[in-house]
């Protein structure tokens, strides 16, 4: 009666050392296959089909490369890709231009306790929910009662700031979210505010890996703060810069939340704020063209790959080669 059980016990006693690790690690792989690999593979298959979703899987119809051909000749796709690239530059570049010097100052010039306080505050936007951010910025960008327009109106008329902001008067009040030309700057402001803290922390961590002696030696040689920043911190941070820029490229190419909420889910007038991710979402869930949306996700993937490669050639190769010498 107890024979099969006994056999199993003996077998397990002998083999458990070999198989138990696989058992313990299996939850990750099961989840990864179900929620990672399977959707990726399915979306590739889907991109060669026409599928209007409501009929279940049996209504998928093979149409070959039609979806890709449609997208590559679709003015809206190219517009959304252009929007995404413009937003990548105007929201991504300032992030790093602010974060780098900021991290440097935090690292060198502040007592540790104050440094922690500051870096925590800069990090705060990053952990705030995007929805809350966009709702708050929605009121900041308001046409008649928005805080930003009221501030600009004050600056344009106050005696002390008139010389600098007076030219704005003809443009005020600015319809930030209602006119095509202003939507991208409005979105970029929110994205910039949301993400620069993340990069600051990243650079701060990188700076803390640079040995103090290097800076001390430079000081003995008569280097000033500028020299320290330009000739020591920047070159030694190159691997971190490469990493941070890569993250920005990947993140901003998939930009969705901020423009989606700021433009009420549409992409705004003239679709000026419609990123590829928003176009993809609308194609899938508003216009139920799942195959087109899947093909779009692969085109987006390819363009992220191309940009990351360019970034590697520009920043990464040199940075990583230097690290390899160590």
């Amino acid at each position: 009666m107890s024979n099969p059980l006994g056999l199993w016990r003996r077998w397990w006693a002998r083999r458990q050392q070999r198989y138990a690790p696989y058992l313990f690690i299996s939850p990750f792989y099961i989840l990864f296959f179900a929620f990672g690999l399977f959707p990726i593979g399915f979306s590739l298959v889907l991109s060669f089909h026409s599928w209007r979703a409501v009929g279940g899987l049996e209504t998928m119809r093979w149409i070959g490369l039609e979806n890709y051909r449609f997208l590559l000749t679709d003015p809206w796709f190219w517009q959304s890709l252009g929007n995404t690239l413009v937003l990548l530059v105007i929201s991504g570049l300032p992030q790093h231009l602010i974060a780098l010097p900021l991290a440097f100052l935090l690292n060198r010039r502040l007592p540790p306790r104050l440094r922690h306080l500051y870096s925590a505050s800069y990090f705060f936007p990053y952990i705030t929910s995007t929805v809350a951010i966009s709702l708050v910025f929605g009121t900041i960008f308001g046409l008649h009662y928005g805080i930003l327009n009221q501030l600009l109106e004050y600056l344009a008329s106050a005696p002390w700031s008139r010389w600098l902001f007076g030219w704005l008067e003809g443009y005020l009040p600015i319809n930030w979210l209602g006119k095509a030309v202003y939507i991208k700057p409005a979105i970029a402001i929110v994205v910039l505010w949301h993400w620069f803290g993340w990069n600051t922390i990243l650079y701060l961590a990188g700076l803390q890996t640079i040995p103090r002696e290097v800076f001390e030696a430079a000081k003995v040689d008569g280097a000033n703060v500028w020299h320290e920043f330009w000739h020591i911190s920047l070159p030694l941070l190159r691997p971190i810069i490469f990493f941070a820029v890569t993250m920005t490229i990947i993140g901003n190419m998939q930009l969705f939340d901020e423009p989606f909420i700021l433009t009420g889910g549409t992409g705004g007038p003239g679709r000026a704020g419609m990123t590829v991710a928003i176009y993809l979402y609308r194609t899938a869930f508003e216009w139920t063209q799942m195959g087109v949306a899947a093909a779009m996700s692969w085109l987006l993937f390819v363009s992220i790959g191309v940009l990351s490669l360019l970034n590697y050639l520009l920043l990464g190769r040199a940075a990583l080669a230097r690290r390899g010498e160590e």
Partner: peptide, 9 residues
Amino acid sequence: ARFAAEGGL
């Protein structure tokens, strides 16, 4: 319109 495609309903 989203639900008017073949199948589903």
